[in-house]
Design a protein around this nucleic acid. Structure first.
Lengths: 263, 263
DNA sequence: TTATTATTTCGACAATATGAAAACTAACAA
DNA sequence: TTGTTAGTTTTCATATTGTCGAAATAATAA
């Protein structure tokens, strides 16, 4: 087609090649053992040639690496170097670590500390339990907010105006039988959490998991994260959730205090 | 309009906008407290308008964030999420941590564990000493290879062919009075390190610092990193360097064993 | 207020990223 | 061996896209 009125880069707001490059990085990050060029192109829905150019650039910049044997792409050390300047996040994770360890020890399940990353929830730090079955969640993973305990705990910490904005931007995709897909219902649930101090997830994200979480505040009295734990439904019953709510509330309180929160 | 033979993206091999976007990210990462648009444009030598478009895109993707108060750009949590899939690096850092702590404790100086990142050296993990003056080095920082102890230790672990290649690609930029700027001299020094098992840096990178480092091997008997410590010249004398060489060698050995190295 | 400095938007242009196709490799059967 | 298939890399013509100048807007300072 003719150029017509296809103006500057400000069109969709985004620079295409950047958009694409990062979707490539995200796709690769999602795969434990890396990805080959063709798999990758299929996953991000771009021609191999295009993906190849982008990857070659990322490779030369050190933000991708290639497994010596095959040609599979993996995340490069450049990303690691960049990430180390997320000083606040690293500090938060470090502070949360001992509390997560306690929570995990007391419950026998794995514990998580999460923060906002856009409209999603980023798991900043996690403590592993020593049971054989572990939730498949690692630090660095992104989760939806509306159907996870940590996500709902974070939502409960938003100012009314910010909450409205968030909810408008969010799509309540169903992930498991109990996912809340109605905004009004979610709103009521958030009210409940605000009053109760604890959020639950009873098979809302993963059919086989139940979780609890509570918001964590900093010295400015603002909710900066959420702490909680999750376990398989056959180990964590609904009454367990209730039983552990006080403990979760207490850990969130201790962590908040460690972050300078008072009263 | 000399479009002439200005062909595809494969020209310089690199995609310009990606190149620029990452130089922006790197520049921001370099500044503890973020950067404003104009400072940023000056630093990367691009028009504010261009930088603005790039930053807007990075912002919307979550790889940059803006300090709530001002408009300073900082690294976003997206980078953190990506970095967490550098599983190998994280595992390496975790393994090194206790040995770094011991090294730091015994010497009273800060200790580092570093790996290759392209032709530079990436500090993967560091242990702080409790002295008032600390080297200004954090995990995630990049250092040149030819004038740092960890860098030279890593160089000493390369196969002859790989070493030749590396040296060809490297420019021996002087950083301090004793920086080795002659490739033949560097080659001899690397020979020495290979025989001795320890690399020194006597004011080669920073006039005020001395360091020692030793290569670390994994189960495949390949050098995967280097461990060492550094301190200010007024605390670490040349004879201290000698005194601590055995200790450094020993720590590198223990860490190697922890990584599965045998014999 | 005005002056100054920083951020954001606009729009024309051409340099640049794109994708089709073809060349090249590697792996594997027959 | 040779042929077949799947994956990777290079080439190249083209229009799309990023770029930059300039001007508008916003924020600070004097």
């Amino acid at each position: 087609m003719k150029s017509g009125k296809t103006g500057g880069a400000a069109r969709g707001g985004s620079i295409q090649s950047l958009d694409r490059a990062f979707s490539i990085l995200e796709e690769i990050a999602r795969h434990e053992h890396g990805l080959g060029l063709v798999e990758l192109s299929r996953a991000v829905d771009l021609h191999t040639s295009t993906v190849h150019h982008l990857c070659k650039t990322l490779l030369s910049l050190g933000y991708l690496s290639q497994s010596e044997s095959g040609k599979r792409y993996r995340i490069g050390r450049g990303v690691f170097a960049l990430a180390s300047s997320c000083a606040d996040e690293i500090e938060l994770a470090r502070t949360a670590r001992p509390f997560l360890a306690e929570l995990s020890k007391s419950t026998g399940e794995s514990a998580h500390f999460a923060v906002w990353a856009g409209n999603q929830v980023l798991i900043l730090e996690r403590a592993y339990s020593d049971s054989a079955f572990q939730m498949n969640e690692r630090a660095g993973m992104l989760r939806p907010a509306h159907c996870t305990a940590i996500g709902k705990a974070l939502l409960s910490g938003l100012e009314p105006a910010a909450l409205d904005e968030r909810l408008d931007e969010m799509t309540l995709t169903p992930h498991a039988p109990n996912t809340i897909v109605d905004k009004e219902q979610l709103r009521r649930e958030i009210e409940r959490i605000r009053a109760d101090g604890v959020a639950y997830d009873d098979s809302e994200y993963n059919e086989e998991a139940r979780c609890i979480a509570a918001p964590v505040r900093d010295f400015r009295n603002r909710v900066v994260g959420a702490i909680g734990f999750s376990g398989p439904v056959w180990r964590v019953s609904l009454s367990d959730l209730n039983k552990y709510s006080a403990l979760t509330r207490e850990k969130s309180r201790s962590l908040s205090l460690a972050l300078g929160w008072r009263e």
